[in-house]
């Protein structure tokens, strides 16, 4: 584990390239297996957006795309546009979840990851309600809130988060935003990106490439 002095030099960020995602669910399965995520709950999931010719937006994510998607919801001819959007904790700089925690169990690590102290969390669920991205859930077996940790146990061992490693299309990228020469910084410098719900003022560190306005 790096020292606190080394941690403050890091700021972990995340990129999702929606133009590359094939909705296979490899990331969801890898996250489940890596982190023992309980059934019916997800730290990361994949949503499918299908926009019909009448501009209606259909969004679905059957079981979080754990077993991918079985068929098109709209007939191919009627779907004007369809794409997948992986979701996960946005690790916001101004996160609502950490502000509402009454016991200081939700916090920002020195390297910019929003984490939960399972020893202090009492499972009140304020943070679950506060998160505008629905990225948290209550783990009823442990009686605490739970969420994506950006695989904190992996990134400080030099391994990528399980979802990043599992993605067969390199649709997910993580890295150190504090390093101007890091691959993630280069991508953000060269490509146009979008943030989820920017009007919420949460200042997320999860950046989306190729996103559509319909995505919330």
């Amino acid at each position: 584990m790096p020292s606190p002095e080394e941690l403050v030099k890091l700021e972990w960020g995340y990129i999702v390239d929606t133009t590359r995602c094939i909705g296979c669910g490899s990331c969801v399965r890898a996250c489940k297996l890596e982190n023992d995520v309980p059934d019916r709950y997800f730290r990361t999931w994949v949503e499918r957006y299908e926009i019909g010719r009448d501009e209606t937006v259909h969004v679905d994510s059957p079981n979080g795309a754990l077993e991918s998607f079985k068929s098109d919801r709209l007939a191919d001819a009627s779907a004007v546009k369809a794409f997948f959007v992986p979701k996960l904790c946005n690790h916001c700089r101004n996160s609502a979840c950490t502000q509402v925690c009454p016991v200081g169990a939700s916090f920002h690590s020195p390297d910019g990851v929003v984490l939960i102290d399972k020893q202090r969390c009492m499972g009140c669920g304020y943070c679950v309600q506060a998160c505008p991205y629905a990225c948290r859930y209550i783990d009823h077996a442990k009686g605490t809130a739970d969420k994506c940790t950006l695989c904190y146990h992996r990134i400080h061992r030099g391994l990528p988060p399980a979802c990043v490693q599992a993605c067969p299309r390199q649709a997910r990228l993580y890295g150190n935003l504090a390093d101007p020469d890091s691959p993630i910084r280069r991508v953000l410098h060269e490509r146009r990106y979008y943030l989820l719900k920017p009007d919420m003022g949460t200042n997320p560190k999860c950046y989306y490439l190729g996103l559509d306005l319909e995505v919330k």
Binding site: M1, G104, P110, D117, Q119, R120, C151, H153, R154, R157
Partner: peptide, 22 residues
């Protein structure tokens, strides 16, 4: 020690063993 939280929480999270070796 590090902020408005328990510093040992970082070590608790780090202690988890990776399963996907890569």
């Amino acid at each position: 020690k590090l902020g408005n939280y328990r510093a040992g929480a970082l070590n608790d999270l780090f202690a988890q063993a990776p399963r996907h070796e890569g």
